[in-house]
Design a protein around this nucleic acid. Structure first.
Length: 403
RNA sequence: GGGGAGAUGGCCGAGCGGUCAAUGGCAGCAGACUGUAAAUCUGCCGGCGUACGCCUACGGAGGUUCGAAUCCUUCUCUCCCCA
């Protein structure tokens, strides 16, 4: 393996990163790697407690992929043991603790999804329970003695919670130490993570020093906000664009992001090169260009990235038909009408509303349309023999009733 | 170990023993306007019934009362102060 010259490697590595700490150490490592023809060990920890990947996760996975493309050794650490502890990062509540078995099952699905981004054949996958589970209580105490409470409290999340009198469990202090031990175990050269992981990544450096290793360089990546443009993308906020979302969903959700997120999405979600970024920036600054069109390009390219360009064009067409021309989708679920059914009943049974009361509310609010005509009668019912009726609920829920 | 405060609907946060399905804010949903953007306006926002109705709910379990989210007992959990 011959490695690219360091400056060229650095250019790709820097793209879209928040911080590289310390940058000169990274360059030294790259120089050394090139001279000795040894790939660097790039560590990325993943949390298998929530295995549904979205394009927010993809940001850091893409960075790992960059390193793979540069010929370095990517190591995915499945945090099965740490998921068992519950990472407090970015939470004001303690996360649920999974059993090791649950964590392992989730990990499989995680890797399955990550395949879209990573070169799976060259990826090294390790489970941190392999070494963490083997530690004895006295090992843990010895480890814990290497860090102080004051240093732990430097972490923003902990100090905030402490100030606002929100509980912090002792085991949460152990989380960064456990993650740091992963770096020691792997002798990682570089560790990647979101900006919310900065503290944990830095602890890895400290612990490696304690264990007479060369400390890892840490690279943090910005957190991508979700479709609301405010909270970081997360399934629990309901603002995520899943890697496995259908092309239509992916396209539509992307168009729903606020305009001020367009640039960030091009950079982080699409991993655009500097030339493209300059172009996008210019377009957004140009009053003659409607930001919507830039966003449409974003949505198209995003779908093309995870599917292909043909699918992306189709997704755009579908979108235009449904939302711009107020048409109906090609495909929708069907509901077979076997007997006279109250509309309210039907909406609920078909899963279009979360309860019958909800269905009634929506009908009263003119949100339910039968073949394009709003129905505000909560007593309306359909009977067999009425033929095909397309029911639309709200902006995007459709069902075809066959009666 | 001692003393004090507190646990309310997705979150924050009000709540005089009856008029509380529970003020308000956020989030969410729908309608209008749009570009599934932003801003704005309107309505909804526990479940079941087309209404005045019923059921479930204010940390858990008991109790007082005609009646409790509101009072008492106890349990669980959390925070603060002192040691």
């Amino acid at each position: 393996m011959t490695f690219l010259p360091v400056p060229e490697q650095m250019e790709l590595i820097r793209r879209g990163t928040e911080e590289i700490i310390p940058e000169d150490e990274l360059m030294q490592k790259l120089v050394w790697s090139r001279e000795t023809d040894t790939p660097l060990k790039i560590k990325l920890g993943c949390d298998p407690s929530r295995p549904d990947l979205h394009i927010g996760h993809a940001v850091v996975l893409r960075k790992l992929r960059h390193f793979q493309d540069l010929g370095h050794q990517a190591i995915l650490v499945i945090g099965d043991f740490t998921a068992h502890i519950g990472d407090p990062s970015g939470r004001n509540k303690t996360r649920p603790q999974l059993t090791l078995e649950e964590a392992r099952d989730n990990a499989e699905s995680y890797v399955e999804q990550a395949k879209v981004i990573l070169d799976i054949d060259k990826l090294k996958i390790v489970y941190n329970s392999d070494w963490l589970d083997a530690m004895s209580f006295s090992d843990v105490i010895k480890l814990a003695s290497k860090y102080t409470v004051a240093r732990m409290m430097e972490r923003d999340d902990f100090s905030k919670r402490f100030k606002s009198e929100i509980p912090i469990s002792i085991h949460e202090f152990l989380y960064p130490l456990a993650q740091g031990m992963d770096s020691v175990e792997l002798k990682a050269d570089v560790e990647l993570g979101g900006t919310d992981q900065k503290f944990n990544l830095l602890v890895g450096r400290d612990l490696q020093r304690e264990y007479q290793q060369k400390p890892q360089v840490i690279i943090t990546l910005p957190l991508l906000e979700g479709t609301d443009g405010v909270e970081k993308m997360s399934k629990s906020y309901g603002n995520h664009i899943g890697l496995h979302d259908s092309p239509d969903e992916m396209y539509g959700k992307t168009l729903s992001i606020p305009d001020n997120m367009i640039e960030k999405y091009f950079l982080l979600a699409l991993d655009s090169d500097p030339n493209t970024m300059a172009e996008i920036k210019a377009q957004l600054a140009d009053p003659a260009v409607n930001p919507r069109d830039v966003k449409r390009r974003l949505a198209r390219e995003l779908v093309a990235l995870y599917y292909d360009s043909e699918t992306a064009v189709q997704a755009e067409k579908n979108f235009d038909r449904i939302f711009i021309h107020k048409g109906i989708p090609d495909e929708m679920d069907e509901y077979l009408l076997s007997q006279k059914t109250l509309l309210v009943e039907l909406l609920f049974n078909a899963g279009l509303t979360k309860s019958k009361s909800d269905a009634r509310r929506l009908i009263k609010q003119n949100a339910v349309k039968l073949d394009g005509i709003a129905c505000s009668d909560i007593n309306y019912s359909l009977r067999p023999g009425c033929g095909e009726v397309i029911i639309k609920v709200g902006k995007r829920k459709f069902i075809k009733v066959i009666g």
